[in-house]
């Protein structure tokens, strides 16, 4: 038997690693991947809580709502990655560089 707390703490650890990656790295692609990692940690917590409430038999609880939320998060992440990577490619075309420290002006 695995307590749901373990899943939530694992999710917190993964989220923190993602946040650390956003703060310390200078490559926008790796920053993007860290954001994906944070979304993933949130998804894990969603599924774990949904499962635990399903097993608890919480009244008026749809046992699939956690999983369906994760499904929507995955769709939103796919949309975000498509637009974000297009933006990065466009910035690279205009600046010939994608170091995040040099992206300090809105006008290319």
């Amino acid at each position: 038997m695995v307590h749901v707390d373990y899943y939530v703490i694992l999710s917190a650890i993964l989220f923190t690693i993602g946040a650390l990656g956003v703060l310390v790295r200078r490559n926008p692609l790796i920053i993007f991947m860290s954001i994906e990692l944070m979304l993933n940690a949130g998804n894990l917590a969603f599924v774990a809580f949904g499962r635990s409430h399903e097993l608890l038999g919480t009244p008026n609880f749809n046992p699939f709502s956690g999983q369906i939320f994760v499904f929507f998060v995955i769709a939103v992440a796919a949309a975000e990655v498509a637009v974000g990577l297009a933006l990065i490619v466009e910035i690279f075309k205009t600046k010939k560089n994608i170091n995040i420290d040099e992206m300090n002006s809105l006008k290319g």
């Binding site: 695995v2 307590h3 707390d5 917190a12 923190t16 946040a19 703060l23 499962r51 097993l55 608890l56």
Partner: peptide, 25 residues
């Protein structure tokens, strides 16, 4: 800040858990 965040999160989850819930294997 990351260390502070992880400490806060684990403290929060460990101290405010409503009941012990298990997931069957």
């Amino acid at each position: 800040l990351a260390f502070a965040l992880i400490a806060e999160l684990i403290y929060l989850f460990w101290n405010t858990r409503p009941e012990i819930i298990t997931t069957p294997g």
